[in-house]
Amino acid sequence: MYELRKMVELDLLNLIKNPMWVAYATLFPILLVMTLSFLGGSGHVMRPVDYFGITMMLFSALLSSSFSANAFMEERIKLPNMRLIMLPVPVYFIPLSKIVATFIFSVLFYSLDGLVLYGVFQVNFGGPYWPAVWLLLIAVDLFSIVLGILFCTIFKTETTANQVTSLMVQTLALLSGCFFPIYVLGDKLGAVSQYSPVTMVINTLFEVIYDGNFYHYYSALLVILSLSLVGGMLSLRLFKGDDYL
Rank of each mutant, 00 (worst) to 15 (best):
K6D: 09
M7N: 02
M7R: 08
L12D: 04
L13T: 07
M20Q: 10
W21N: 08
Y24L: 11
Y24M: 12
A25K: 05
T26H: 02
T26G: 05
L27Q: 02
P29W: 00
F38R: 02
G40W: 07
V45L: 15
G53R: 08
A61M: 12
S65M: 04
N70A: 12
A71R: 04
E75D: 15
K78E: 11
L87S: 14
L96Q: 07
K98C: 02
V100G: 01
F103A: 09
F109W: 15
Y110K: 14
L112P: 00
G114A: 14
L117E: 12
Y118Q: 02
Q122C: 00
V123D: 05
V123M: 08
G126F: 09
W130L: 12
L136F: 01
S144R: 12
S144Y: 06
G148I: 00
F151R: 01
C152L: 03
C152Y: 01
T153L: 03
F155N: 03
E158F: 09
N162L: 11
Q163L: 15
L167Q: 08
L167N: 07
L172H: 09
L175M: 13
S176V: 05
F179N: 14
P181Y: 10
I182H: 07
L189Q: 06
A191F: 02
V192A: 05
S193G: 14
Q194T: 11
V198T: 14
T199G: 14
V201W: 01
G212R: 10
Y218S: 07
S219P: 03
L227S: 08
L229S: 11
V230D: 05
M233N: 04
R237L: 09
F239W: 11
F239M: 10
D242G: 02
D243A: 06
